[in-house]
Simulated scan of single mutants.
Amino acid sequence: MTGLDAHHSCVALTAGDPNGVGPEIALKALAALTPEQRNRVTLFGPVEVLQKTANVLHLQDVLHSITLVSAGEMSTQFHVPGKVDPVAGRSAIDSATAAIQACRRGEFDSVVAGPHHETAIAQAGIAFSGYPSLVASVCEQASDSVFLMLVGGGLRIVHVTLHESVEISLGRMRTELVIAATQAGVMACQRLGVSTPRVALFGINPHASEGTLFGEHDVNCTVPAALALNQTGLSVTGPMGADVLLANHATQPHDLYVAMFHDQGHIPIKLLAPQGASAFSIGADVLLASTGHGSAMDIAGKGQAKPDALLRSLRMLLGIASVSPSTAAVS
């Protein structure tokens, strides 16, 4: 897997949930690109909604300057900014699916997906637990072979488990899954230009179980995972308590952290980069990035949404921005 090319990488961008801020931030992010950069982005989404949004934002020239693919089509009668609607939920999935399929066919190098709304998708009757599960499904891979990596606030964190209860996560936690998530994270770092990433594993229990004082989960799972990963030539620290590793990041930084559960990884990223994080679905043939924030229904249609996180993802995957996660906002 090679690094991203600053002059030739092409990206499929999707509008996300049409009733959320997705269409707005997609157009604002495109407006922030140069004409040459914009030429390497194709926008997938409901045409009528995008045209309506462009008119409201006075960005008709931006919409007319790009390639637009009709996907997740939805008439303006269903377009009610801020409303959680199954039609909008299905639109978000359909446009993302079309973009992923196009990327699989070799038409694009990667996908940047607009923010979705999980309740709207559930109301549409679609089984969905985040973009990693969708990427796995479209790429015909096992659901536990695609992982989420958040980038922002000076951190890159890949998650071994994601949208499930801690009880279910513990039931699935095994050495092989930790190894797979770590290897996917390393490959994603390499694609983003970090050739030899330094990796740190969070423990499952506090203090990585303090031996076996707090249980045997780590000695049976993360400890052998770290040993096996180091034997492959990777530079892996841990397992250690997540609090200790993150507290020492300023003086003993790692390029990639491996979180065992959703909150272990999401809390530090959301604290340091609440609106500026990028979310990568990694481990599949298709590299997909999205925003670390949701569809922001409370400000949808008000023209207040900032495109920083989406623009950061676009710039990284176009190969025109630093891959360093050191800042949360787009410069």
Rank of each mutant, 00 (worst) to 15 (best):
V223P: 01
A242N: 02
Q264H: 08
I269W: 01
Y257S: 06
L245F: 13
A273K: 05
Q264E: 02
A277F: 07
T251V: 15
G276L: 08
N248K: 12
L229W: 05
L229F: 11
G233T: 09
T251R: 07
T251N: 06
G265T: 11
L271M: 15
P253I: 10
D243G: 04
L229G: 04
A228P: 00
P253Y: 13
V236G: 01
L234T: 06
T237W: 09
P253F: 15
D263C: 08
V258I: 15
D263V: 03
D243K: 02
V258H: 09
L271P: 00
M260A: 02
P224Y: 05
L245H: 08
H249R: 09
L246K: 05
G238A: 06
K270H: 10
A226Q: 12
P274A: 06
V244D: 13
G241H: 02
H249W: 10
A250M: 09
N230T: 13
I269A: 08
V258Q: 09
Q252H: 15
A228K: 13
A242D: 11
Q275Y: 07
L256R: 08
P274E: 04
H266T: 13
L227H: 03
L245E: 14
V223I: 14
S235P: 06
Y257D: 10
I267D: 03
A277T: 07
L245C: 07
Q275K: 15
L245R: 07
T237N: 11
A226S: 14
A226L: 06
A277Q: 05
T232P: 01
N248H: 13
P274G: 01
P239T: 07
A250T: 13
V244P: 00
M240A: 15
A226D: 11
M260N: 12
Q252L: 12
P224T: 13
M260E: 05
P268I: 01
M260F: 03
Q231N: 03
V244S: 15
D243N: 10
H249K: 06
N230P: 01
A226T: 08
A250R: 14
M240I: 04
A273Q: 10
H266S: 05
P253H: 06
T232K: 10
G276Y: 08
Q231C: 02
L245T: 02
K270Q: 07
P268C: 00
V236P: 02
F261H: 04
G276M: 04
A273M: 00
N230H: 06
V244R: 04
A250F: 03
K270R: 15
L256G: 12
M260W: 05
H254Q: 10
P224F: 14
V258T: 07
G241A: 07
D255N: 14
A250P: 10
I267N: 11
V258G: 09
A247D: 15
A242S: 13
L234D: 03
V244Q: 08
V244N: 12
G238R: 12
G265I: 01
D263A: 03
N248Q: 15
P224D: 08
N230E: 12
A242R: 02
H266G: 01
N230A: 06
A225L: 08
Q231W: 00
Q231G: 04
L272Q: 11
P253K: 11
